[in-house]
Design a binder for these strands. Structure first.
Lengths: 337, 337
DNA sequence: GTGAAAGCGCTAACAG
DNA sequence: CTGTTAGCGCTTTCAC
């Protein structure tokens, strides 16, 4: 293994000089800089991460905690993880991957050991048990998702409430009066995941404001489960003409069953989805949708964290405004019969 | 921050004693051990990761390189990543997440800096440019996937060739004589991803051996693309009654279009998929399929790597045998008309 | 603009 | 069974 001392010797300078050309923390004459850089290249030197962390008091690693569960939309998680990793690299950080499995202990361990300089948490619940720890710690963190109480925390998230409102607004504007919401799996609501509840709030309050009727049904399973769900919806609200779907695995079953029942999209019923763009354009009917900006969320989270690690910027809640793209799955409500 | 020295003082022992109760590398009297453990708990001590890595010459971190691309089946990647992380934790390792973005440089950086003790690489191409580096390095690594030349490497993968053979065998046994393969996106074949090519080899050689006719079509896009693909297949081989699908995003379009064309599954045509179990049971027709054992692959990769890091076990290629589960999408070939 | 030297917190001989 | 001590490779004063 090549050490800094060896580089120094090879370049005919002192160790501190090498260290400083690497960090740029003091000015170096062009000549020495070049000699040092040349030695580094020739010897294939890579600074030892452990030594650096020990002496410099920062590991240049950020931890990313992802959920262990797989009932939530996986591609979104993956896209966020990748965006976090590439953005982190661009800021000089590596990413340590943690699963929710260890819970708060993982936070303690990583913070306590100085393994990571800061952390990004996904899948935040409204009353997450990791939050007290984060508030106490000196180590900065950023949440992707919004807990109930955000004091002392930095959060990045899509504005889910506005997302819900936007969906209802779109359907209301097209004349729909009875709307059904196909939601995430029941477990997602039961553990009070922020995004699911907030979306629902947005849907409901906007529906109330517009005088629309709204039905919400969690969904989980395959085609049979969807058939049941749909049957119940049309039993309870035969005049339903608008659907909002927030559950990737519900999209195809919904479209297929509507088709089978002779309900044309968008002539008879309209469908608005909350999903990544990629999904919206790959379905049998191109979906009018509000995009889940996974990459943007990952990127912004790292940028906020990097800023905090550099001493700039304090706590802040960043809510990304939703954007609705009209495609082929929504249209004017059919004339009331 | 609490240090080992503080724990030692609090417990009234020397630093080395504390270190040894932590590592278990020499026997400690029950009394001292308890006092030390008590002090650790009371002070909330966590060993400093950097210092440990520096002095101990191992970081207890393994690096996981995942592909940046998103044209390959994402949930499989995610499942592997999660299995790697939880298994690694069980063996005392943390996981550093790297994207393919940096390519071979990431390998150099991570190995050179001692950031990770070893690495696991996913999305291995047949002639991967990272392989020479891995062969040179003293640091152990495990590939998930199989390159063309495995000398000096440890690999874990599903036996894709056997997987292809198994699919053909199943269809052949049911009397199908003309088989069409709906494959991954063209780009996947173009960059010579091992699993795609090996599957094809298995399909072809078994088809040849059984005297079947086989057609292979890469697939990418939405329903329109599938309509075109299907039209071509039935033009070229009107007698096609068996399909093998290796491309998650092709499954629903295929089923929908067959239905629309009045071809019943499994009465008129049979479909065998290569996909995770979860996908096979969630489609409109429950699919006869060969499972992609993502968790198993992740787990095995970590176990091999941990063994190498502990000095046991050398290079080895672990090929997981494919398992085909018969569900509702395959049946006897229709009597030739 | 450059060096010398004192640690950072821990591990692992080496001694008893 | 336990203590003493010499580094691990780097960053960062302090001095010139």
């Amino acid at each position: 293994m090549v050490t800094l001392a060896e580089v120094a010797q090879h370049a005919g300078v002192s160790a501190s000089t090498v260290s400083y050309v690497l960090s740029g923390k003091r000015s170096i004459s062009a000549g020495t800089r070049q000699r040092v850089e040349r030695s580094i290249r020739e010897l294939g030197y890579h600074p030892n991460a452990g030594a650096r962390a020990l002496a410099g008091k920062r590991s240049n690693i950020i931890a990313l905690m992802i959920p262990l569960r797989t009932d939530l939309y996986v591609p979104v998680m993956m896209e966020i993880a990748i965006a976090v990793t590439t953005t982190a690299r661009a800021h000089g950080y590596d990413v340590l991957l943690l699963t929710g499995e260890e819970g708060p202990d993982a936070v303690r361990r990583v913070i306590g050991s100085g393994l990571a300089d800061g952390m990004i948490l996904m899948d935040v619940e409204l009353a997450d048990e990791r939050l007290p720890l984060l508030r106490e710690t000196a180590r900065p963190s950023v949440l992707i998702g919004l807990p109930a109480d955000t004091t002392g925390l930095t959060c990045v998230d899509l504005d889910w409430s506005a997302t819900g409102a936007l969906c209802v607004e779109h359907l209301a504007g097209l004349g729909h009066r009875d709307i059904a919401v196909i939601g995430e799996a029941p477990a997602v609501y039961e553990r009070h995941t922020g995004f699911a509840e907030r979306t629902l709030d947005g849907l409901r309050s906007r529906a109330r404001a517009s005088g629309l009727r709204l039905l919400h049904r969690p969904y989980e399973g395959g085609y049979d489960a969807m058939a049941l769900t749909l049957a119940r919806i049309f039993d309870e609200r035969p005049a339903t003409t608008g659907f909002v779907v927030q559950n990737e695995s519900a999209v195809e079953p919904l479209l297929a069953l509507l088709r089978r029942q002779g309900r044309a999209v968008p002539e008879d019923v309209s469908v608005v989805a909350v999903c990544p763009e990629q999904v919206a354009v790959q379905t049998s009917v191109r979906l009018t949708s509000v995009a889940i900006p996974a990459q943007e969320m990952g990127r912004r989270a790292v940028e906020r964290l990097a800023a905090k690690l550099d001493g700039h910027g304090g706590d802040e809640v960043v809510l990304l405004p939703p954007e609705l793209t009209v495609r082929s799955s929504s249209g004017p409500a059919p004339a009331a019969s």
